[in-house]
């Protein structure tokens, strides 16, 4: 049994069958990549995992519990954190505040009325946030207005915000989309470091084969809403069906 079990998931948008009979099993402490050409249903599948969409049929079990019918914040509280294609951070807040919010969410749950306490009195959480910022080499930017940072820094910050919650599963939605080669390589290094340092399961949706083959332990190829094949990176590289459906096209 994997930590994430997707069984017979179907999702239709009007006449379009976005997902049909998707089965997926992500093992604990592995990095599982989901690849496929545009329109293969990768994003739809991801949105079904995080509560943004509800599949028409099928089940999604995370850590022994169903995620279906739960809202995104409930699913996050179960232990799934998500990194977006374009970094989603709190742009009006400082880097440090961006780090404090996931810490409060982790400690206090989805809502707590703490209107009289002071943020600056939370020494333990501040230290934790500082340690994480030091980890991703952003401690010097702690008081920066986060919207004014470069895209690469925003991406690092977003990852740090997700990791500080110590999620059981980290979902990455095309984390290097639109990035320059150098930034992409930095992101790969960052993810490799995360993988080696922590016990964490990563599910990654990615277009860039370079990223996928550098990181993934297992790869699922999705085409027209159905998993075509699932295997190790080495096997996937040489797989004729994959060549035909995907690699032959753009790469």
């Amino acid at each position: 049994m994997g930590i994430l079990e997707v069984k017979d998931v179907n999702k239709r948008f009007g006449g379009l069958k976005a997902l049909s009979e998707v089965n997926l099993s992500v093992k604990e402490n592995t990095c599982h990549a989901i690849i496929g050409p545009n329109g293969a249903g990768k994003s739809t599948l991801l949105n079904c995992l995080v509560g943004k969409l509800i599949p028409d049929t099928g089940s999604v079990m995370f850590d022994g519990q169903s995620v279906l019918g739960r809202t995104p914040h409930e699913i996050n509280q179960m232990g799934i954190s998500r990194v977006f294609q374009t970094p989603e951070i709190f742009g009006d807040l400082t880097v440090m505040e961006n780090m404090m919010i996931p810490l409060f969410a982790k400690r206090d749950g989805a809502f707590r009325m703490h209107a009289y306490e002071s943020v600056s009195a939370e020494r333990a959480l501040i230290e934790e946030a500082e340690a994480m910022l030091a980890d991703v080499k952003m401690l010097d930017k702690r008081n920066m207005h986060s919207a004014s940072m470069s895209r690469g820094d925003k991406r690092r910050l977003e990852m740090a915000m997700c990791l500080i919650q110590k999620p059981k599963l980290l979902l990455l939605d095309e984390p290097t989309a639109g990035m320059a080669r150098a930034d992409t390589n930095n992101t790969i290094d960052l993810l490799k470091e995360i993988k080696s340092k922590r016990d964490i399961t990563i599910a990654i949706i990615e277009h860039d084969m370079h990223v996928v083959f550098s990181l993934a332990d297992r790869i699922t190829v999705l085409a027209q809403g159905t998993p075509l094949v699932e295997d190790t990176p080495e096997k996937i590289k040489g797989h004729p069906k994959v060549q035909e459906a995907y690699l032959g096209e753009a790469h």
């Binding site: 995080v50 809202t71 995104p72 914040h73 996050n76 509280q77 954190s81 998500r82 977006f84 989603e88 951070i89 709190f90 742009g91 009006d92 807040l93 505040e97 404090m100 919010i101 996931p102 409060f104 969410a105 982790k106 206090d108 749950g109 989805a110 809502f111 707590r112 009325m113 703490h114 209107a115 009289y116 306490e117 002071s118 943020v119 600056s120 939370e122 915000m161 919650q165």
Partner: peptide
């Protein structure tokens, strides 16, 4: 303004999507 509650309110103004996916309602 200086409390965690106030910080959450500013986070709501800034990015509700991120707030949702950070486990906050």
């Amino acid at each position: 303004f200086r409390s965690p509650f106030g910080m959450m309110l500013r986070a709501i103004k800034s990015n509700q999507q991120r707030l949702n996916y950070t486990g906050l309602n």
